[in-house]
Design a protein around this nucleic acid. Structure first.
Lengths: 363, 363
DNA sequence: ACGACGACTGTATGCGCTTACATTCAGGCG
DNA sequence: CGCCTGAATGTAAGCGCATACAGTCGTCGT
C-alpha cells in the first residue's frame, strides 16, 4: 500500500463524488447534508482513513481548539537517560540503598499531576485539547511565545513566568492565573489559604488542651504563607488564647528548631504549621522532648503531602483541591473565550481539612 | 487600544516596510537577511507584539510541531466542581475524617505525572510541544482521531485504546507504545519487569534466611505480571531453593490471605510480591503471625508506590523509571520522524531496585 | 567598461479547510 | 404554466505562513 501521504478533503470528495464543501459540511454540520450524500461521504472517509488536518482547520477557523497549561519547570537532570545505543548493551538494574527515602525523587506531592488531570478532563469535555508546557528556567520566554501562537487561551501557574512576559507578547491571548495572589484584575483561580487555615485553627482551638498556641510561619515573600498567616490571625482574634509566632520558613528544620526553642520555655498546647514540612519538624521535636501528641499538644500542617499521611501520629492538615483548580482554570478560560468582555473573576476554591490523629479526637 | 485582532506577517511587513517573505525569513532563517533589515523587522515584531500563528505555520510546513501523549483515562467524577455561581457563596471548607487515609484520592503513585514530565521535557528540548490526552472511556476513539490530526507523532500508553484503533484511523501517524508488551513490530518502550524481578530475587536469595520462598503472583492476563513471573523463574531456576507460587492478584488482600494460608503450613523465609500491594498485605499477615521481618522472613514488592516508603518495615521494591520512560518514548518518536524507514526499536529500560529494611542487611 | 555573479529582497503560489455566496432543482402557489 | 422558495450542492475566496523562483543591484574579474 503506497499510502505515502495523508488523504485530504479533495481525496475524499473525489472518492465520494461530491465537492469538498460537502465533505467539510458532513464533518462540521451534518444536518445540512442529505442523508444519502452524508452516508456516501462517511464511507469514503472510512475507506481512505481520512483524518482532518488540525492546522488547516485551525487556520480557516481562526481557532486552534487547544488550551495551554504552563506549569513551573522541573529541570529534569541533564544526566537523564537518553536513547540507549542501537546495539543495546543489556539493561543494567541499579541497586539503590533507599532505606531512608533519600533516593526518592523530589516531586513529592502530586500537585501537578492532579492539576493536569483536572485541566485535561475539563478541556476535553469542552472539545479542547490540552497543551502542557513547563517553563524551564532557560527558556521561559521562548516557551511562552511559542505557546501563545498555538493555543486559544492559556492557564499559567503563578510565578512560572515573570509578570512582564504575561502582559507582553501574549497580550491578546486570554489567560488565567492559577494559584496566584489574585487581585490583579485578570481571571484567576486559587485556593482559599486564608479560609482554610482559619477554619482549621478554629477547630484546633475547640479541641486543644489548655495552653498557648505556637504558629510556625512561612517565608514572608510567599503569598501562600501570607494568606495562611491571615487565616490564623482571623481565627485567634478576639479569642482568649495566648499565642505567638515563630519563623519556620516552610522547612522541616525550621519547624523542628522553633519548637525545640519553645520547649525550653513552655510546652505549647498546639502547634500550627504554615505547611506540612514545618509541622513534621515540630512533630519530631515534640517527640524528642517527650511531649505527647495529641494528648498534651496538638499539631497541624497545611498542604497534604504524602508524608503527612504516614507520619506518627498522622498529621491533620489541609489539602488543596488541585483537580478542581485545574478544572476551574479551564472553565474560566472557556468562559472568557465565549465572552471576551466578561468581567474578570477571581475564584477562591474551598479546601479540605483532613482530620487525622495529630489533632486528637474529632470535634 | 483597539488591538482587536492579532497582527500577522502582513502587518509586520508593512510596519517594517519589507515584504512578507522577508519577515518570514527573519523568523525562520535570519542568516539570509541583512543585518539592518533584520533589525528593522525585529523591531516591528516587538512593536506590534507579533506572534506567529502556529496553525498557518503548520499548514505551510506540513508539520505541527506537536507530539501527543495518550494516557489512560481517569474518569474525573461527574460531581467534580464546576465554576461556582457568579455571586459566589463564600467558600465552604470541608472537614474530612482522614485518619486512615480512606479519603485520599486513588491516584497513588505518581506514575503519570512523571511520564508526562519526562515526555514534556524531551519534547520541548527538541522543539516540540506536548499534547496530553486521556482516553476517557466514553470517547477513546474520538480523542484518538482528534489527536491524530493535531500531532506529528503519538505516544500511547499500552491498553489505553483498543488495538484496532491504533492500526486504524491513524495509520500514517508515527507511534510508539509505552509500557506495552513489546514484540509487536512497532516502536515501543517498556520497563524491564523480567530483568528487574530477576535481579531482585537473586539478591534476596543471597541474603535471605534458610527456608522456602513464596512468590505472590499477579493476574495472569497482565503483561507486567507475566514479565515479573518470568523474572522470578529466571532467578530461582537451578538454585537449590524450595519455592512455590500463590495467586495474590496484585491486591493487598490477596497477598495477606496467601501468606496467612502459608503460615499454617510452614513459615517462609522470603515472600516475593509481584507488586507492592500484595507485598504490603504479606507484611501485615506476617506481623499478625508474629513472624519477624526481615529477621525470619524477608519481603519484597514491585512498583515503588508511596506506601512502600512508609510501611513498617519499609518495603524493598523495584521502581520503574517513569521519567525515563517518557523521555525515551519521545526520543523514539523523534527518531522515527527523522527517519521514517528506520527499523522499529523495542526498548527495555532497566529499573531501580530500592533496598529497604524489609529485605534485611544490604548484601 | 561589460558581463557574470552573488547577496538580498520581492512576487506569487500553495498548504487543507471553512464558509459566504452562487447555482441547481423540485415543489408549491397564484 | 410561470415564478417564487427553500433544500442541497457546488464554486471560489480566503485563513497566515513558507518558499521556489524571479528580479534588483552592487562587485569583481578581465
Amino acid at each position: 500500500m503506497a499510502e505515502s501521504k495523508s488523504p485530504t478533503v479533495y481525496d475524499v470528495a473525489r472518492e465520494a463524488d461530491v465537492s469538498i464543501a460537502t465533505v467539510s459540511r458532513v464533518l462540521r454540520s451534518p444536518e445540512k447534508v442529505s442523508v444519502s450524500t452524508r452516508e456516501r461521504v462517511l464511507q469514503a472517509v472510512r475507506r481512505l482513513g481520512y483524518v482532518p488536518n488540525a492546522s488547516a482547520r485551525g487556520l480557516a477557523d481562526r481557532r486552534t481548539g487547544v488550551l495551554g497549561l504552563l506549569i513551573p519547570g522541573h529541570d529534569i537532570p541533564a544526566t537523564s537517560r537518553r536513547l540507549p545505543a542501537e546495539d543495546g548493551a543489556p539493561a543494567v538494574v541499579e541497586f539503590l540503598d533507599d532505606r531512608d527515602g533519600r533516593q526518592a525523587d523530589p516531586y513529592r506531592n502530586r500537585y501537578f499531576e492532579q492539576l493536569v488531570r483536572g485541566a485535561e478532563a475539563a478541556a476535553w469535555r469542552a472539545g479542547y485539547a490540552l497543551l502542557v508546557a513547563a517553563g524551564t528556567s532557560v527558556s521561559r520566554d521562548v516557551v511562552m511565545h511559542d505557546l501563545a501562537g498555538r493555543v486559544d487561551a492559556l492557564a499559567v501557574v503563578a510565578r512560572t513566568v515573570p509578570d512582564e512576559l504575561l502582559r507582553g507578547s501574549i497580550g491578546r491571548t486570554p489567560m488565567v492565573t492559577v494559584a496566584g495572589e489574585g487581585g490583579t484584575g485578570a481571571d484567576a483561580v486559587r485556593v482559599d489559604n486564608r479560609g482554610g487555615m482559619s477554619a482549621l485553627v478554629r477547630h484546633v482551638l475547640a479541641v486543644k488542651p489548655p495552653g498557648p498556641v505556637l504558629y510556625l510561619a512561612g517565608p514572608p515573600d510567599s503569598p501562600d504563607a501570607a494568606g495562611r498567616a491571615r487565616g490564623f490571625h482571623d481565627a485567634v482574634a478576639g479569642q482568649d488564647v495566648p499565642w505567638h509566632t515563630a519563623m519556620a520558613d516552610f522547612t522541616w528544620q525550621g519547624g523542628h528548631d522553633a519548637v525545640t526553642a519553645q520547649l525550653e520555655e513552655e510546652i505549647p498546647a498546639a502547634v500550627i504549621g504554615a505547611n506540612d514540612q514545618s509541622a513534621l519538624g515540630a512533630l519530631a521535636a515534640l517527640r524528642e522532648g517527650g511531649v505527647d501528641v495529641p494528648g498534651t499538644c496538638v499539631v497541624t500542617g497545611f498542604d497534604g503531602i504524602d508524608e503527612s499521611r504516614y507520619s506518627t501520629p498522622t498529621l491533620t492538615t489541609v489539602r488543596q483541591p488541585m483537580i478542581d483548580l485545574g478544572i476551574c482554570a479551564v472553565e474560566l478560560l472557556l468562559r472568557r473565550l465565549a465572552d471576551p468582555d466578561a468581567a474578570p473573576r477571581d475564584l477562591q476554591l474551598p479546601v479540605d481539612v483532613l482530620l487525622r490523629t495529630s489533632c486528637g479526637p474529632l470535634g
